[in-house]
Nucleic acid binder design. Structure first.
Length: 291
DNA sequence: AACCCGGGGCC
DNA sequence: GGCCCAGGGTT
């Protein structure tokens, strides 16, 4: 859950998740829509699918216990270099150095590394540095301390250098100039999103294809061959990955027979996994203010 | 190496 | 409005 997501955001999800899926066996056997529903709002939904896939592998191939070494962990779905080292060091006390956004920021500042973070050789340099800094004992605490330092003091903007224990050795003249990374401009998109209502129910389309929002339902985009627009309900702007989307939300109706999908009432809308921006667009209609 | 995947919180 | 977040997988 913590991959690319701030801890404070994760906390309530984590509590609900463990209450519903307290062990590998429970997660392995749960319906996928239930898994996605518990992840709704966190984003990067492939993480949820990977985690359930992982549960099934742990139950089937590892007798319900995670392997404890980095090379074995790296073979598992959803576990990359960071997560493998985090599990090995924090859960199993192994001497594995890890690199996350916080540690990258701390190290590039302390050692004044001004090469581009996106480059492989920069990552390799940081990984070697992290490994050299690893003490003989308490690897998990060391890793967590570095991440915590990055989160609380060595923050992206306005770092608290006066309070920082590494201030005496920090080589960055201007900490806020680190790390160096490229920031491509967002791609702007316009879209027309349709609210098609019948008897207090709204039409939702499935998202079956791999990619964004797989396994979710969503409000359909306007298709002039099948739909007609009735009245505009408003606009909703949202950002998703590299895109900045301006959505026009319309009340619309089918010109032809409806394709695959469902007519969802309020109770169903609360149970079905729906992308956050679509949930907000739905609220533009008075019938669904309660969403 | 480049690209894809979400959403919220903050300034 | 831009930036960042306890990244990983695929092409």
């Amino acid at each position: 859950m913590c991959q690319q997501t701030q801890i404070v955001t994760v906390l309530p999800y984590y509590e609900r998740w463990l209450k519903r899926f307290p062990d590998w066996e429970t997660l392995a056997q749960a319906p996928e829509t239930d898994v996605l529903k518990h992840w709704e709002g966190l984003g990067y939904y492939r993480r949820a699918r990977h985690l359930q896939n992982l549960a099934r592998i742990v139950v089937r191939d590892f007798s319900g216990t995670l392997p404890q070494d980095v090379p074995s962990l790296l073979q598992l779905p959803g576990i990359g270099p960071y997560t493998a080292a985090a599990i090995a060091s924090i859960a199993f006390g192994q001497k594995a150095a890890l690199l996350d956004g916080n540690v990258q920021r701390v190290l590039t500042r302390v050692f004044a590394i001004s090469s581009n973070l996106a480059l492989g050789r920069t990552q390799k340099e940081l990984q070697q540095l992290a490994a050299q800094l690893m003490p003989e004992t308490h690897p998990g605490q060391h890793n967590q301390a570095l991440m915590e330092l990055g989160a609380l003091l060595c923050s992206p903007r306005k770092p608290q250098c006066l309070l920082c224990p590494l201030q005496p050795i920090c080589q960055a003249p201007d900490p806020e100039a680190f790390p160096v990374k490229d920031r491509p401009a967002p791609i702007r998109q316009l879209e027309k999103v349709c609210l098609i209502l019948r008897d207090s129910r709204v039409w939702l389309s499935p998202t079956d294809a791999p990619g964004r929002w797989q396994g979710f339902h969503r409000l359909p985009l306007f298709d002039p061959a099948r739909m007609e627009l009735n009245t505009p309900l408003g606009q909703h702007r949202y950002s998703i990955t590299k895109y900045r989307v301006q959505a026009e939300v319309w009340s619309a109706s089918w010109k032809t027979t409806a394709p695959a999908g469902i007519w969802a009432n309020l109770a169903q809308l609360r149970q079905i996994p729906l992308p956050a921006p679509h949930r907000k667009m739905l609220r533009l209609h008075p019938d669904f203010l309660a969403m």
